[in-house]
Computed example of a mutant assay.
Amino acid sequence: MSAHAWMPNSPCDTSCVTGGTFRRVSIVRVMLRVLTALVVLLSGLLIVVAKPVLRSNTRHAIRRWFASLVRAFGVRVEVHGDARFQATPGRGVLVVSNHVSWLDSLTLNAVQPMAMVAKLDIKGWPLLGKLISAAGSVFIDRERLTRLPETVSELGEALRNGLAIGTNPEGTTWCGISSGRFRPALFQAALDAGVPVRPVALRYRVADGTTARPAAFVGTEDLVTAMRRVLRLRGLVVEVHVLPEIAPGRADNRRDLALIAEADVAEALGTTVALHKELDFQRA
C-alpha cells in the first residue's frame, strides 16, 4: 500500500536506537524475561475468555495483567502526578501522549486500562491484539483517510458514553530525545463530546537518568527486533507524567487544542518541539 501525503514521518531511524553505551543483562536473564513474558501472555487468554464473567472487575484484571507484562520485560513504571487519567469516574476523557515505543500502550494500560486508538495492524498481533481489542480499542487505518470522519464520530460517541480513550497524536514514533507535532484530527472527538483532554508525557530512561533510546520503536524495523533490545536493557524505567487536564472550552478548535497538549507534553519532557505564537494567549 502506498503512503499518502498526510502520513506523519519521523526523522528517527535505527541509528537513533543503536548508538550509545547502555548496560545489558546476561543471556540467562534475557531467557528468564522471555519465559516470564510468555507465561503472562498466555495467562491473558484467561482474561479474554473470562471477560463476560469478570464484568466490573475486568478493568482491574486487565490493569494487573498489563502491569505484570511490563514487569516481565524488565521495565519499571514510575507515575508522576495523579495516577488517574479520569479525574471524574464515568466522565469521558481523551488521553494524549507522545509516541516512543511499542511499550507505550502497555504502560498506559498498566496505570489505568482504557480504550486505545491503535494502528489497524496491531489488531493482528498475537494475543496482544486480542487484549487491546478487549479493552474496547478503536483501530484506525491510516492508509484510508476516507474513514477518518467515521473514526472521529465513533470516538466522540465513546467519549460521550464516559470512556477514557488513549491516542498518540504524533501518528508515528520518535526516539525520545525529540518529539513530533500533534496532529489535530482526533482532538475533534473531544470537542464534539465536550470532554477534557488529559496530556500524558512518557519518558524512557535508565538508572543514571540517560534517555533509553534503545527502547524506541522507530523506522522500518520489525517488532521482534525492538523487543529484543528492551529484553537486553538493564534498569529500564518508564516515567509516566500525568499532566493537568485541558478543560472543555479552553480551546475553540481542534488545532488550538492540539497545540496546547503538544506544548504541555514537550514542556514536561524538555524535548525540542517548536512552540507556536498561537499558544501565547492560551498559556497566559
Rank of each mutant, 00 (worst) to 15 (best):
T151G: 02
F85I: 10
M116R: 00
A50L: 15
V197D: 12
A158P: 04
L186T: 06
K119R: 08
P244N: 01
A226Y: 14
E170Y: 05
R255W: 08
V96T: 14
V138S: 08
R255K: 11
A189I: 14
A261M: 08
K123L: 13
T211E: 05
R181N: 11
P8T: 04
E78H: 13
R63K: 04
Q188S: 03
V30P: 08
W65R: 02
G219V: 00
L46C: 11
P149G: 01
A134T: 09
R283H: 06
V75L: 07
R232L: 08
L42W: 00
G20E: 04
A201F: 14
L127V: 15
T146Q: 12
A263P: 09
G156D: 09
Q282Y: 09
L131P: 02
L202G: 05
W102A: 15
V138K: 04
G156P: 11
G19F: 12
L69Y: 11
G270P: 05
L145N: 06
T172M: 03
E157F: 02
S137V: 00
T14V: 15
T220Q: 15
A83S: 13
T272E: 12
W174Y: 15
S137H: 03
D82T: 07
A201H: 11
G249K: 00
C175S: 14
R24V: 00
Q282C: 04
C16R: 13
G270I: 06
R205M: 02
F85E: 13
C16D: 15
P214V: 01
L155R: 00
L259T: 06
H60F: 15
L163Y: 08
R24H: 03
V30L: 03
V273H: 06
E221W: 01
R142C: 04
A201S: 11
S68N: 03
V48H: 11
I260K: 09
I132R: 03
I62Y: 10
F66H: 12
V238E: 04
A215V: 06
A50P: 09
N161M: 08
A212G: 14
